[in-house]
Amino acid sequence: MLDLNEFMHIGIHHYIALSLILFAVGMMGVMIRTNVLIILMSIELMLNAVNLSFVTFSHYNKNFDGQIIVFFVMTIAAAEAAVGLALVVLIFKHVKTLNVRFFEKLRG
């Protein structure tokens, strides 16, 4: 059985485990849901999990490179959300549904 003091002392494994579970929840969201908006939100969750592990490594290795990369990951995530949602609005105007199944109707 896990001895209790391993949970008492917060080390690197706890933060990485947290970011891992957050990533898994985001991945499940993308897999299971059919609403485009929820899929985009789950992608944001996955990117946040990656940010979390970057900051953990930068904290425990005591250098700033991890935090700089978090900066750039945030920019990419925001740009992706911006363009993604612009597309969602256009798709909704055309197809009137947010269900991801609309891809099946695209032909050619």
Binding site: S58, M74, A78
Partner: peptide, 27 residues
């Protein structure tokens, strides 16, 4: 909050500005 906890306050504040204050508002 975890970023603040891990000694990265600037990244925590930027996270709130970019994600909580802009991206999710768009959602």
């Amino acid at each position: 909050g975890v970023f603040l906890n891990l000694g990265a306050p600037f990244i925590g504040a930027v996270q709130v500005i970019v994600y909580a204050g802009a991206v999710v508002v768009l959602f």
